[in-house]
Lab assay of single mutants.
Amino acid sequence: RRVTVRKADAGGLGISIKGGRENKMPILISKIFKGLAADQTEALFVGDAILSVNGEDLSSATHDEAVQALKKTGKEVVLEVKYMK
């Protein structure tokens, strides 16, 4: 599913991630910080795999590559996510 997140002037997306190619895992949302941008969408969940950020494929990204992709986003971020059981 596709989720658009609008960041506030102060603060980032409000998520922590884990996983990555070096761990043989997808990039997973490991924490959502209450009240910040990702939480306010009410459409992102701990355990979601982030498949892409603004069209940039993260399916084979390392953890560091995913962190950089998320950091360089502007005010509006489009995440392609899939819930992983």
Rank of each mutant, 00 (worst) to 15 (best):
residue 51 L to F: 07
residue 52 S to K: 12
residue 50 I to G: 04
residue 24 K to C: 11
residue 74 G to S: 10
residue 21 R to A: 13
residue 71 K to M: 12
residue 17 I to G: 02
residue 34 K to S: 10
residue 11 G to T: 14
residue 59 S to E: 09
residue 20 G to Y: 03
residue 1 R to N: 00
residue 80 E to C: 08
residue 34 K to I: 08
residue 39 D to F: 07
residue 17 I to M: 05
residue 71 K to R: 13
residue 38 A to S: 07
residue 68 Q to E: 14
residue 63 H to S: 10
residue 7 K to E: 07
residue 35 G to L: 00
residue 39 D to R: 04
residue 11 G to Q: 14
residue 69 A to F: 07
residue 12 G to C: 10
residue 48 D to S: 03
residue 72 K to F: 10
residue 77 V to H: 05
residue 54 N to T: 00
residue 17 I to A: 03
residue 33 F to N: 14
residue 6 R to M: 14
residue 36 L to W: 10
residue 21 R to W: 07
residue 9 D to I: 11
residue 38 A to G: 05
residue 14 G to M: 03
residue 63 H to W: 09
residue 24 K to W: 04
residue 65 E to V: 05
residue 15 I to G: 01
residue 84 M to S: 11
residue 61 A to L: 07
residue 26 P to T: 03
residue 71 K to W: 09
residue 61 A to N: 07
residue 70 L to R: 01
residue 63 H to C: 14
residue 67 V to Y: 10
residue 53 V to Y: 01
residue 37 A to D: 05
residue 25 M to R: 08
residue 25 M to K: 07
residue 84 M to W: 15
residue 79 L to Y: 00
residue 50 I to M: 05
residue 43 A to F: 03
residue 53 V to Q: 01
residue 45 F to S: 13
residue 27 I to M: 04
residue 4 T to S: 07
residue 23 N to I: 10
residue 33 F to D: 15
residue 6 R to Q: 13
residue 52 S to Q: 07
residue 58 L to D: 03
residue 21 R to E: 06
residue 72 K to T: 11
residue 15 I to R: 01
residue 73 T to M: 06
residue 79 L to I: 08
residue 26 P to L: 03
residue 61 A to K: 08
residue 52 S to H: 04
residue 69 A to W: 04
residue 47 G to V: 03
residue 50 I to Q: 06
residue 42 E to F: 02
residue 6 R to T: 14
residue 1 R to P: 05
residue 79 L to V: 06
residue 64 D to C: 09
residue 28 L to W: 15
residue 47 G to I: 00
residue 30 S to G: 07
residue 3 V to C: 00
residue 62 T to D: 04
residue 75 K to Y: 07
residue 51 L to S: 06
residue 74 G to V: 06
residue 15 I to D: 02
residue 35 G to R: 05
residue 84 M to G: 12
residue 7 K to F: 10
residue 33 F to Q: 15
residue 48 D to G: 02
residue 16 S to V: 12
residue 34 K to L: 06
residue 63 H to G: 06
residue 12 G to A: 11
residue 77 V to W: 06
residue 48 D to K: 01
residue 66 A to E: 02
residue 67 V to G: 04
residue 2 R to T: 13
residue 54 N to S: 03
residue 4 T to W: 10
residue 45 F to C: 13
residue 16 S to C: 13
residue 28 L to Q: 11
residue 64 D to Y: 11
residue 13 L to W: 04
residue 39 D to P: 02
residue 66 A to T: 03
residue 51 L to Q: 07
residue 75 K to E: 14
residue 82 K to S: 10
residue 26 P to H: 01
residue 40 Q to C: 11
residue 55 G to I: 01
residue 59 S to H: 08
residue 46 V to M: 06
residue 60 S to F: 11
residue 12 G to F: 09
residue 43 A to T: 07
residue 45 F to R: 14
residue 64 D to A: 15
residue 7 K to R: 10
residue 75 K to L: 08
residue 31 K to P: 03
residue 75 K to H: 11
residue 34 K to F: 03
residue 65 E to W: 01
residue 23 N to M: 11
residue 70 L to E: 01
residue 64 D to T: 10
residue 73 T to F: 04
residue 69 A to T: 11
residue 40 Q to P: 05
residue 81 V to I: 06
residue 35 G to H: 07
residue 3 V to Y: 03
residue 62 T to I: 06
residue 66 A to M: 03
residue 42 E to R: 14
residue 20 G to E: 05
residue 30 S to F: 00
residue 32 I to Q: 03
residue 26 P to R: 03
residue 52 S to V: 04
residue 6 R to P: 08
residue 28 L to E: 08
residue 50 I to K: 04
residue 83 Y to P: 15
residue 51 L to I: 11
residue 79 L to D: 03
residue 77 V to A: 11
residue 64 D to N: 09
residue 44 L to S: 15
residue 10 A to I: 15
residue 62 T to Y: 07
residue 43 A to M: 10
residue 65 E to C: 03
residue 82 K to A: 12
residue 8 A to F: 10
residue 80 E to G: 07
residue 2 R to L: 12
residue 79 L to T: 05
residue 18 K to R: 13
residue 6 R to I: 13
residue 5 V to R: 01
residue 5 V to W: 03
residue 13 L to I: 13
residue 16 S to E: 15
residue 66 A to F: 06
residue 19 G to D: 01
residue 4 T to K: 08
residue 50 I to L: 09
residue 12 G to H: 09
residue 48 D to T: 00
residue 85 K to P: 14
residue 51 L to Y: 06
residue 58 L to C: 05
residue 9 D to K: 12
residue 63 H to Y: 15
residue 72 K to S: 14
residue 77 V to F: 08
residue 2 R to F: 15
residue 22 E to F: 04
residue 15 I to M: 10
residue 33 F to A: 15
residue 18 K to M: 14
residue 82 K to T: 11
residue 63 H to K: 12
residue 84 M to H: 12
residue 28 L to T: 14
residue 32 I to W: 01
residue 35 G to F: 00
residue 40 Q to Y: 06
residue 9 D to W: 09
residue 5 V to N: 00
residue 41 T to S: 12
residue 73 T to Y: 07
residue 46 V to Y: 00
residue 50 I to S: 01
residue 51 L to H: 07
residue 84 M to L: 11
residue 74 G to M: 06
residue 56 E to F: 11
residue 32 I to H: 03
residue 63 H to F: 11
residue 28 L to V: 15
residue 22 E to K: 00
residue 56 E to K: 14
residue 62 T to R: 06
residue 8 A to L: 14
residue 73 T to S: 12
residue 22 E to Y: 02
residue 12 G to S: 11
residue 14 G to P: 06
residue 62 T to G: 05
residue 3 V to M: 04
residue 23 N to V: 12
residue 70 L to Q: 05
residue 54 N to Y: 00
residue 9 D to Y: 13
residue 31 K to M: 03
residue 82 K to I: 11
residue 70 L to T: 04
residue 3 V to I: 09
residue 54 N to F: 01
residue 32 I to T: 02
residue 83 Y to M: 13
residue 6 R to G: 06
residue 25 M to P: 03
residue 27 I to L: 04
residue 53 V to I: 11
residue 80 E to W: 05
residue 2 R to K: 14
residue 59 S to G: 08
residue 33 F to L: 09
residue 13 L to H: 02
residue 45 F to Y: 15
residue 35 G to V: 04
residue 51 L to K: 07
residue 65 E to P: 01
residue 29 I to S: 02
residue 77 V to Q: 06
residue 39 D to V: 02
residue 1 R to D: 02
residue 27 I to G: 03
residue 3 V to F: 03
residue 82 K to Y: 06
residue 11 G to F: 09
residue 30 S to P: 03
residue 33 F to V: 14
residue 74 G to Y: 02
residue 62 T to H: 00
residue 51 L to R: 07
residue 37 A to L: 06
residue 14 G to A: 05
residue 6 R to W: 12
residue 55 G to M: 04
residue 73 T to E: 09
residue 81 V to Q: 06
residue 4 T to G: 02
residue 82 K to E: 13
residue 6 R to F: 13
residue 21 R to K: 11
residue 69 A to I: 15
residue 66 A to P: 03
residue 46 V to E: 12
residue 83 Y to L: 10
residue 59 S to W: 07
residue 43 A to I: 02
residue 21 R to Y: 10
residue 26 P to V: 02
residue 36 L to V: 06
residue 58 L to M: 13
residue 15 I to P: 00
residue 26 P to Y: 05
residue 35 G to K: 07
residue 82 K to N: 07
residue 17 I to P: 03
residue 8 A to P: 15
residue 53 V to E: 03
residue 46 V to S: 05
residue 35 G to P: 06
residue 42 E to Y: 01
residue 72 K to W: 08
residue 29 I to A: 03
residue 1 R to Y: 02
residue 22 E to T: 05
residue 32 I to R: 02
residue 54 N to M: 00
residue 71 K to H: 11
residue 65 E to G: 05
residue 14 G to K: 00
residue 80 E to A: 03
residue 82 K to W: 01
